[in-house]
Design a protein around this nucleic acid. Structure first.
Lengths: 220, 220
DNA sequence: AAAATTACGTTGCCGTGGCAACGAAAGGAG
DNA sequence: CTCCTTTCGTTGCCACGGCAACGTAATTTT
């Protein structure tokens, strides 16, 4: 096992741990590392997923296939990202597939059983790993829930304000830049792109807002 | 500690355990039991929630307060229900309050620290408890995600079909009864009640569907 | 630098679904 | 049984926002 503990220390699951702890954990859990080519499947829809993964290099997508076979991208994890945590935790057949979306995607796997069970040495890092896992899954829950709050807001303007206020709070400043294109922003808010542009324009004319492309200054 | 292990065995967190295991766990974790009167707060918005709870008797509501002070019920747990799991897992200030919504609500609390740490005796039930906790939180995640799927469907009819097909699958039969009133069903789908009734009527006229009140027979 | 591609703003049209109001049916209380 | 409350279906109105189309600005390509 020879992975970059410097990278792992910055991931959600190994946050707050020392290099030595991480090495011991990886050893204790028997974590496999694998490489995938672009388009290669880590798991298919219908599989039971027994472990989570950390992206060491490249990119991994979570894809859902509709009844008509159309694929929709539901999540993307890049270097340092954690995936499969909520799939293995469910212990049921997966509703989505995991696909390497870059060439030479390298992945470190962490088996659920190893995370849950005691290593016998009562090491504190094992406990921290469990706490981190639980924190990561719950983070994804609350993130989803915030998005649901947008979608349940019936009025477009209030939907936008809800979103922008969250962004402002996260940025800690009235002026902030969003990591979304208009199209992506519209998808997060669950509205039509042109309708979003129209309403943003109105809000700017009314002085609630200033923006240019992805730069916003929120005044309300 | 003198709680009804028969009830606990049917809860999400203690599923699959023997009475003896449960008693040992409760002893090991030092789980407090408390009674609350109707309207009494278990936690307020802004608190950091250090433990989850199981409703032994009565009812506990999760309430979110809007900027205008209006309260919206976001979740309700009755006898045997688990709450606070995703709040303690987050380790951050709670965005919602937990309130006893019945008189004499009795609650068993399970501290996160105790769940995560080893009891020193390496008992299998401790591991099972962790697995159950993770399964319960992920269950709530996927439940939320299914609801999000409804809300992101732009056409009302397809939204309804998505929902009813899920219900049919869960029931395992074309004929099923829903545990929702029209108003509640409309809220789950994020649409206006009368619009829902209207569209349901259309679908019935077109032969996609038969229904009376909460009884449905789905043909498509 | 020119061309091609992508992202964004703008506008007109029109359909879906929100809203309010009403009556009927169902359920509960006395 | 009668009264009262709640739930549900129905309808008319109309505004919000989806959709398509186009022009412009920004970005990338060769």
């Amino acid at each position: 096992m020879d992975v970059d503990t410097g990278l792992l220390r910055q991931t959600a699951l190994f946050q707050g741990m020392e290099d030595g702890d991480i090495r011991r954990l990886l050893d204790c859990l028997h974590c496999p590392v694998r490489r995938y080519g672009r388009g290669e499947f880590l798991w298919h829809t219908g599989d039971i997923v027994p472990m989570a993964g950390i992206v060491l290099d490249g990119c991994v997508d979570a894809v859902q296939y509709g009844e008509d076979g159309a694929a929709t991208l539901t999540a993307r994890q890049e270097k340092g990202g954690v995936f499969g945590d909520l799939l293995m935790a469910a212990g049921q057949v997966s509703p989505l597939s995991l696909v390497a979306s870059s060439d030479g995607a390298e992945v470190l796997f962490l088996p659920l059983d190893g995370i849950l069970s005691d290593c016998g040495r009562g090491c504190a890092c094992h406990i921290a790993l469990r706490r981190n896992l639980l924190a990561e899954t719950s983070r994804k829950f609350w993130q989803l829930r915030r998005r649901l709050a947008y979608l349940t807001e019936p009025q477009l303007r209030r939907r936008i304000l809800l979103f922008l206020r969250d962004c402002r709070e996260e940025a800690g400043c009235d002026y902030f830049r969003l990591p979304y294109s208009r199209q992506e922003m519209a998808e997060v808010l669950g509205v039509n792109r042109s309708a979003l542009s129209r309403e943003l324009g109105r809000m700017q004319r009314e002085g609630l807002l200033e923006f240019y492309r992805s730069s916003f200054r929120l005044k309300a």
